[in-house]
Structures are given as structure tokens and as C-alpha cells.
Nucleic acid binder design. Sequence first.
DNA 1: GCCTCCTTCTAGAACGTTCTAGGCCAGGGA
DNA 2: TCCCTGGCCTAGAACGTTCTAGAAGGAGGC
Lengths: 333, 333
Amino acid sequence: MTPAGPDRRPTLADVAARAGVSTALASIVMREAPGASATTRERVRRAAEEIGYRPDSRARLLRSSRSRLLGVVFGVQHAFHGDLVSGLYAAAERVGYELALSAVTPGRDERRAVAGLLSDRCEALVLLGPHSPTAALADLAARLPVVVVARSVRSAAVDVVRTADAEGMHLAVDHLVALGRRDVVHVDGGRAPGAAERRRGFREAARRHGLEARVVAGGLTEDDGAAAARALLAGPLPTAVTVFNDRCALGVLDELRRAGRAVPGEVAVVGYDDSRIARLATVDLTSVAQDVAQLTTLAVGRAVARLDGTPVERRELVVPPRLVVRSTTASPR
Amino acid sequence: MTPAGPDRRPTLADVAARAGVSTALASIVMREAPGASATTRERVRRAAEEIGYRPDSRARLLRSSRSRLLGVVFGVQHAFHGDLVSGLYAAAERVGYELALSAVTPGRDERRAVAGLLSDRCEALVLLGPHSPTAALADLAARLPVVVVARSVRSAAVDVVRTADAEGMHLAVDHLVALGRRDVVHVDGGRAPGAAERRRGFREAARRHGLEARVVAGGLTEDDGAAAARALLAGPLPTAVTVFNDRCALGVLDELRRAGRAVPGEVAVVGYDDSRIARLATVDLTSVAQDVAQLTTLAVGRAVARLDGTPVERRELVVPPRLVVRSTTASPR
DNA sequence: GCCTCCTTCTAGAACGTTCTAGGCCAGGGA
DNA sequence: TCCCTGGCCTAGAACGTTCTAGAAGGAGGC
């Protein structure tokens, strides 16, 4: 019978009492720290097992000034953020950190998400494609290390890890031109994180090839893509289209096919993100892939470097993208 | 100059010192508890503001035995889980609880996700479509209240909140029959959470209408749906298809259209989940909608009831689904 | 004057861990 | 004999909160 009620969560003191040692020694055993004999270790471990002891990470963190906890803010809507979160878990584990997740939802904005993490005593924050203004991010960075992923921020206070989106568009345009497609249009992502950079890359590459750099309004969703495709269908059809992201590209594809236009026969289409959608057999979309493993490893690495006080050379880390060619691009029929 | 280094996180004692009161009183003010004069409140609040004080939720939770923290395990891949998480945040906030998120990723299984939440001192767990065997869930439920969402579990130990999936299939089949479609096939979800129930519902409804209850193998993804459609195209085409979920339905749709079959002219298609995909103008899929707001409100409510010791009548709460009719179902051409 | 009651406040003990400082004992060198 | 040294262990103080018990001071009733 435990002293303070039957359903009390077992504590280290309970383990120690049962094993007949001090709590300090029990702590040593549980942490696998040096300073206990083999027999005692065994005894303490068995006691812990028997009463179902689980360390209370909050008490643990309270005591040690370091929490080894990285806060992550992600958008619950974005499939790509899901991939990034997976990568972050793996990267954090490799360097002995834990993750605290906080989601941005339609009813919970970034401020709320960040506030939650701050009171959880995270040592640093990793923000996935944040929408907060630069000033707000800089304010935050005055409190603790902040790493922004997949968006570029013009501030000396925050670290940025992102894909070389302009280069990704170069790859896409070069690929299309090599296929003999010279009338290329870009379907834009508006004010979404990364859109400006991708637009810029498109324009640079088009100019380099001596092409007219035509850009039409698009967006993040399939419906935005469909609308853009309808706009394109109203005029003379280009021979190739680069699209802000895969979801939008899907809308473009669908609308083109509905209008009876052959893809890639008449029009080639390139997406961005290499999401699961792009990889589906029924879609099989050529797309610019972001290197998730690299992005997440660098993001965690940068956060840890800041915490350890390791000198850091550049604020911005840029990861090269990769073009994944599938069946929506080919030479004209 | 703070005593213990310049970048120490400000604590309640700092606030109290600056305001010239005891920490206990500062605590009272920060918690908005009764027992402080208006002028003192104002003074303490200003001091907190000035030094940028943020309560340390871990210390707070350590002290009070209640953590008011609900652990949520979700799959980072599932768009539907994203919707549920959004709803859970809102529902938890309404009853004064916080959420701790723990993701299941390709490299992080449910055991890991749950273990993390347990050491975070969550009072109860909400599991979204868990894959763990019933026995493991029951073990867990012996430690703390467990609510499983969107899957049915045959165990008296855990609470379940789910959609009446069988009824959803009744709605779908009734709708198709009312449209004059009597040759209906179900594309199955295999061992996915909810699949068995949906299959059962389909069979019941078909039998009720005196139809042959034909079921073909499908799955969760677009590719599974495409494969199922190819199987259907190999024989005489049914006049209607119900599909395990929207993603799979999308594959079915795509493959049917590629084969030149008119939807809904020749074949009507009904999906399940009413996901964002189904709502897209380019897809516009008739689908069975799950009531996310209701599911999440009930899940949180049930967890809280267990914690408060409120007597609970049934272990399983079943929420009625709703049929959303769009353009993939109509009378035969 | 004394008692009670209220409001406003404070000291100090929790909470469950880790860490610091030190105790005790055996072994070994002088 | 004495003093180190090293291995194993413990007491007790942190960590930043909240909570309990109670003090101080005034108002009011007798």
C-alpha cells in the first residue's frame, strides 16, 4: 500500500525505498551514471520494474538547467511539414535532444503555438515555413535560438535552413529547354513561403535561355492550379509549365486534361516538393525535390550549435534541390 | 544585473523582487487568483512585463499534482489526423486543458510516441487511429485513461469515440440505389482502422436492398484505388462503386477516366472522409463526412470525465456520419 | 479594552528530480 | 602508526512553481 493513495504515480523515492537505498543512488542507477555497484544497480532496476516506475521528465528538466528540448512549430495542414517533422525527430534523436511539437491550425495561430513551447522550457525553436513577420521572428530570437526552415528571412538574428529554390527552378527550366520546350510559363505561389524565390529563379533561368519569362497567378492549392490552367487555356497554350508546388500542379494537370490537352504531348508540367502525390502512379509528376533529411539535419545541427555556443559562420544554410523526372515532361510529340 | 548570469530566464522570484513583494504574492497575481489588492496586481504585472517573465509550465505542473495535460498520438502522414488535431486543440481549450503532441512517423512507432507522453506527465491519452494491438492498449489503460478515436477496440478498458462507419456505408448505398444504381461494388480498405466496419455496413445495406454485395480488394492510397479500378475494368463494369476512403477513391476515379469511362455517367463513385481532396473543384467527389468537431469534442470530454471521476455510461461513443453529395454520383445517363 | 472578521500579505514546505559535498570503509604506501 | 586514494553510498540543497498556515493591520461589535 503506497502511503498517499493507491493510484499515485510511483516516484524515485518509492523505488529507492523498495530497493533499500537513497534516492540519490536510485537516480544514479536510472540515469546509468557512474557510482553504483553492479549488484545495487540490479536491485534498483528490479524495484523500478516491479512498481512500474517512469521518470518524470518535467521534474528532471526542472532540476537540470538544460532541458535538451527543441520546440517545433508546424502547420497541421501541410503534408510537407509532416515529412519535415519525421526528419526532425530522427535528427534530434541522433544528437540526444527531444522534440516538443506545437501545431498551427485554423484556430490556433503561430503566436499561440510559440507561446506554448516557450513555457515548456524549450531551449531553441525550429519554425517550419512560419508566416510571422520578420520583426516578430527577430524579437523571438532575442530570447532563444530560432531556426527557420523552408523560408528565407532577412534578419541577422535568426538562422535559416532552406532549399535553393531559385536553383530548383533553374533545374526545371533547363530540363524543359533541353527537351525542346521554349515557351515556358510559371504558375506563381503568391505570398507563400518560398514563392518569391522560386519566381526569381524562374525568371533568371528563362532570361539565361533568352526566353520570355511569363508568370501567371496561381496559389498553394489544386483549385488555384485549375484556375491558372483555365487562364492559360484562354490564350495560346505554352509548351511547358512550371508550378509553385505539387498540389497546385495537380490542379493544372487535371484542368489541362479535362480540356483535352495532352500532357506531356502538348504541354509539359513540372511541380515542386516531390510530395507523395507527385509520386503516385496515376499522377507521376516531374517535380523538384527538397532534401528533407538534409534540411532537418542541418536545422537541428544549427540549433544545437547555437546552444553549445559553437561559432557559426553563416546565418543561412542553403540545400541544393534535385529534379525528379517522371512522365509529365518529355520532348514534344 | 541579474545575480546568476545575464541570460538567465527570469523567474517568479525576479518578478517578486522587482515589485517588492513575496514570490507567493507574485504567484497569486500571475495566476489571477484572489488575494491581492488592485494596486499590487498592477505593480506585479508591470514588473513581469518589464523583465519579460514567462511562467515555467514544468515547474508549475511539478507542484500541482494535476497537469491538465492531454497527450495526443497522431500519424504525421494522415491528412485526416491533422483535422482531428485541430479539433482537439479547440476542444481542450474549451475545458481548460493543454495538449501535448507526439507524432508517429516512419521512424518512430506508437510505443515511442506513447512513452514520450507518459514521461511528460499527461493525465490522459488520446490516440488517433492507433495500430497497437488491443492488449497493448488495455495495458496502457491500466495506467491512465485512454481514449481511442476513429477505430473500434474490443476492450472494456479503453474508451472509444468513432464514426458510425457502417451507417455511413448505409447512407452511401441508399443514395446510390435511390439514383437507380443497383450493381454496386465496394473497394475495401483491408486492415486499416475502420475498414472492417465499413465493409460490414456495405454488406448490410446491399443485402437490405436485395443486391449482391460484391467487395474487391483496395487499400488506403491512390495507387491501391487505381489497381482496384483496373480489376473492375477487367470484368463487366458495375454501375456504382463505394470506396474505403477519398484517397483510394481518387485513384479509382482517375483510372476509370483514363479508361474512357464516364463518371458519373457510366459509374458513380462515393468516397469516405470528405477530405480536402474530395472538396476540390477538380475532384468534386461525393463522400461520407465524419463529424470532426463532434468526434474531438467527445474524445476530450470523455478523457476529462474519466479524470474527474464522472460516472460514464458507455465505453463507446458513436457519431453519425453525413453524406455529402457532389458530382461523382447522379442517375445513370 | 477584547474579540472576531476581513483583506492583504509572507514564510516555508511541498512537488520529483539532479547535483554537490561529504562520509565510511577497505587497501596500500610511507 | 598515519595518511592517501578510490569505490560506494547518503544527506541535503537546489530547480521554479503552488499551497498551507498564519501574521499584520484595520474595521467593527460588544
